[in-house]
Each structure stands twice: as C-alpha cells, then as structure tokens.
C-alpha cells in the first residue's frame, strides 16, 4: 500500500467532506424541525455559487488584486451570498412549504422536488446549460506536510467549514433563538406553549440552513474553479446521505456524516474506480436506511403525537 497516496487522498476526502458536511447541516436542521426532506436544499447551495459569481463580477474581482482588496471582495461576496440565500430559504419555506404544513407528508415532499427543479431551471436560464468558469482569485500555493502536500484552498475549505459548524453549535446551544429551535424540534406544541412563535422559528431554521448552504456554494466556486447549474442535484443527494448516515435531525451527526461520505467517495474513486464513487455513496444510504435508520449517532427521531 502506498501510504503517501492514501494520505493525499485523505486530505482530499476531508476537504470534499467538509463541503458535504456544511450542506448536510441544512438538511438535518430542517428535517429535525418539520420532518421534511428539503430536496431544494442542494440547489440553494448551487444557487449560492452563482450569486457569488455574480457578486465577484460586479466587484470586478480578479486574480491580480492586492491582498486587502481581495479580502474585501471575499468578505462582501460571502456576506451577500449568505444573505441572499438565507432570504431565499425563507421565501421557499413561506410560499412552498408552509401552506402544506400539517397535510399528508407526500405533498410537501413533492413540492420540495418541484422547488428543486425550478431553481435548477432558473440557474440554467441565467447562466446557460454548460459549466461556467469561476474566477480563481485566491492564490493556491501548496504546502508540504512531510511527504504530503496540501493546498491553501484546501485549508480554507476545511477551516471555514469547521468555523461554520462550531458557530452553529454555539448558536443552537447558547442563544435564545437557538434554544427556541431545539425546543420546536423536540415538541412543537410545547414550544408554542412556552411562548415561542414556531412560524418564525421554522423560518429561522430555513434561514440558517440556507446561509450555510450559500457559504458552501461560495467555497465550492473558489475551490473547483467552475460551477454548473446541476451541481446541487448530486451534491444535495450526497449531503442528504451524509445527514442520514450521521442520524438525521442531529447536527453533530450531519458533520460527522459529511466527512465520512467525503472519505468514502474519494477512497472508492482511488482504490475501486472513479465510476464507482457515487455507487458507493448511495449504497451507504441504502445500507443505513435498512440496518440503522437512526444513523450513527442513533438519536430517536423527534417524538410527535
């Protein structure tokens, strides 16, 4: 076994998994609170890449900017994209899902698929059917870690994902709004009785999940250098798999599942064959659903009556 190659792929797996993990958080939070698999979430992530591209173009960003200008452009791009996607999440919940709340579960699920197709088609109308280049504005020198090399962008991807996960944990456990979210996820009726406006809390959940997806969309553009309107379909399904693997409804599980799925995808591509990577990921989904539907961190699903 070539351990250098393995180590190199491990780094690739972690950076890929970090992006899945951030997307998976949105799936798991929404499922935790309204038991809906929000199939449009992956497309919100890809829409984030497109909004980021448009913002960078507006700012006139290029690879030859001074460090300060670059930092400014990146900060503005992240802020704009995260806010626009957060608002998009709120709009989707308000107009597509809320009117169906309390109805049979199939209706919102089908609606979610419809919203997903709608976003994909809007993105295609906006920037066309082919992959679009994304400006490579962040210098990407490689550092050596003993025999391994790691790119600066990989460090950015992993670092920013970890920061977002930590921020989410703090938000959910330490803030008033975060506590309202957890309470609503555990028992919406009791949460109402505590004086929590659950409509606002559900909207907030979509906002937070979509903000994270937007950030992941920016990172993806910067990292891969091109974006495509259909990216969110595959990435969304894989991130959903990560959420199920970790235990849907559980944010720690979603993060863990994201890294594991990134690892499985990269290692299968390396050692079994590139064409098997997606097969391996979805086999994991099927196996988890059959043998351990509560996922690795096997939490009980939210009790409802």
């Amino acid at each position: 076994m070539n351990w250098v190659l393995f180590g190199q792929q491990l780094i690739n797996g972690v950076s890929l998994g970090a992006i899945y993990a951030v997307i998976a958080l949105g799936y798991t939070m929404v499922y935790g609170i309204i038991e809906l698999i929000n199939f449009a979430h992956g497309d919100v992530y890809t829409a984030g890449s497109f909004v980021a591209l448009a913002t960078l173009v507006l700012l006139g960003a290029s690879g030859h900017m001074a460090a300060a200008a670059l930092a400014f452009a990146l900060a503005v791009t992240f802020a704009v994209t995260m806010l626009v996607m957060g608002a998009t999440g709120i709009v989707i919940e308000r107009f597509a899902y809320r009117p169906l709340r309390g109805k049979q579960r199939l209706a919102p699920l089908l609606t979610a698929i419809g919203v997903s197709f709608s976003i994909e088609n809007l993105l295609q109308l906006w920037m066309g059917p082919s992959p679009v280049p994304f400006p490579q504005i962040v210098p990407n020198p490689f550092f050596s870690l003993g025999p391994l090399t790691v790119g600066q962008m990989q460090l950015v991807v992993i670092g920013s994902s970890l920061v977002m996960m930590a921020a989410l944990q703090l938000f959910v456990h330490r803030t008033r709004l975060g506590k309202a979210m957890r309470a609503t996820a555990q028992d919406w009726m009791a949460a109402e009785i505590m004086g929590i406006d659950i409509n606002k809390t559900i909207a907030l959940t979509f906002f937070v999940g979509s903000v994270l997806a937007g950030a992941a969309g920016v990172i993806t553009g910067l990292f891969y250098g091109n974006i495509w309107f259909i990216n969110g379909f595959r990435a969304g399904l894989i991130a959903f798999t990560a959420a199920v693997l970790g235990g849907i409804g559980n944010t720690t599980g979603a993060a863990l599942g994201g890294f594991l799925i990134g690892f499985i995808e990269v290692m299968t591509a390396q050692y079994v064959g590139f064409q098997w990577a997606t097969v391996a990921v979805f086999s994991v989904l099927i196996l988890v659903l059959i043998f351990r539907p509560t996922g690795l961190l096997g939490q009980q699903l939210p009790e409802r009556t």
Partner: peptide, 25 residues
C-alpha cells in the same frame, strides 16, 4: 399556560433547560 395532556416536556433537554424554556417569554 397550558400543561398539556401527556406532559410534553422537552425530552432531550435537561430538567434545568426545560425549566428555563418555561421562562422563555
């Protein structure tokens, strides 16, 4: 304030967190 049928405490929060939720408003 309603104490509903079946109690409906927050099962994955601690006793203290449940009581704090009572003071949410």
């Amino acid at each position: 304030c309603l104490v509903p049928e079946g109690r409906r405490i927050f099962p994955r929060m601690t006793v203290l967190e449940n009581l704090e939720m009572g003071a949410f408003a």
